[in-house]
């Protein structure tokens, strides 16, 4: 059982047919009679696998096809072609047995009823997922403790702040202890403390139930905190699938050298040693190709009055940015 991947995706394609419309009343009047359609390929043949218990970051700029892929995997969309198996099920058949083990959290939408306390929505979910009373109480207690929900559950949802609502939302999605968890921007619009809380919580759920997690986020901190592995897509195509650490080696084959020099003249001279990333007075940051880093550093130390020098990998945001720019070029 452990050998079987939880999520298996092969050549998944989704094409939307969208109605094209130009601006202006005249154009809209014309479209009364003749509608123009355009085929938009949101996902163009994506393949990957996730093993049980893996937490994987799903990265790509807006419109890359992340949400479309997640929607196909959760059974909300029929793919145009290709195959997918999640826990052995074909998602878009939407079998109850599958949906019972799945949760899909959308950061910007709410499944909780607006006018009543979250607790009442939980009780409905209990009935829907047929969660036995004992298990329901246990899980709820855990969630209340982990997310500090005590005071929130009895207030009507409309009175909660965005962060509080997101916590209640997450709890609602996890009450049935899903084996597979799709998180679509779970930290959107939530403050830093709350982001941390949510991350810890996802990690905890993953550890406790060996659940497989696929996560999209615009906050790289979410990804670095939770995921060892990332899948990167762009324009509907798979760009990268592998270790987060190896991502920077592949797409950003350089290191950053931070220098603090004694005077401005030597700072100017330092800039001749490599591509300048930034400069602030006598503090200069250079970008050097990975393989040349050690030799250049040696020369810098020998030839210039260096006060301080550090070598580091570029920030993950920059690597990602590099990835997408590289594709555009």
């Amino acid at each position: 059982m452990a050998e079987q991947p939880h999520v298996l995706v092969r050549d998944l394609v989704k094409t939307y047919r969208v109605h094209e419309r130009e601006a202006g009343a005249g154009a809209s009047f014309r479209s009364l009679f003749k509608r123009k359609y355009k085929e938009v390929e949101a996902v163009k043949g994506v393949s990957f696998q996730l093993m049980p218990g893996e937490v994987v970051g799903f990265l790509g700029p807006n419109g890359a096809g992340k949400t479309t892929t997640l929607k196909m995997l959760s059974g909300l969309l029929y793919p145009t072609s290709g195959e997918a198996r999640v826990l052995g099920f074909e998602p878009w058949k939407r079998e109850a047995a599958y949906l019972r083990q799945l949760s899909y959290v959308l950061g910007n939408r709410s499944q909780l009823a607006w006018d009543i306390p979250a607790m009442d929505s939980y009780l409905v979910n209990q009935a829907i997922y047929e969660i036995p009373e004992k298990q329901f109480r246990e899980t709820l207690d855990e969630l209340v403790a982990l997310l500090d929900l005590e005071k929130l559950l009895k207030k009507p949802v409309r009175g909660l702040s965005l962060g509080e609502r997101m916590k209640c939302e997450l709890a609602a999605s996890l009450l049935h202890r899903p084996q597979v968890l799709f998180l679509d921007e779970p930290t959107l619009g939530v403050d830093v403390t709350m982001q941390n809380r949510i991350r810890q919580f996802v990690a905890e759920h993953n550890r406790r139930y060996n659940a497989t997690v696929l996560l999209t986020s615009h906050y790289m901190a979410d990804v670095t905190a939770l995921c060892k592995r990332v899948i990167v897509i762009h324009h509907g195509k798979l760009l990268y699938d592998g270790d987060l650490a190896a991502l920077s080696e592949k797409f950003a084959p350089f290191k950053q050298v931070r220098l603090d020099l004694q005077d401005m003249a030597s700072a100017e001279r330092a800039k001749e040693f490599g591509e300048v990333h930034s400069q602030e007075g006598t503090k200069v940051t250079l970008r050097l190709p990975r393989e040349k880093t050690s030799s250049v550093v040696a020369r810098l130390l020998a030839e210039l009055p260096v006060i301080d020098l550090t070598v580091e990998d570029p920030a993950i945001e920059e690597v990602i940015d590099q990835v997408f720019q590289g594709v555009e070029a």
Binding site: R21, G24, A25, S28, F29, S31, L32
Partner: peptide, 12 residues
């Protein structure tokens, strides 16, 4: 009016 008309046609 311009925007409104365009919207109205959109949802004709």
């Amino acid at each position: 009016l311009k925007i409104g008309t365009a919207i109205m046609f959109q949802y004709r």
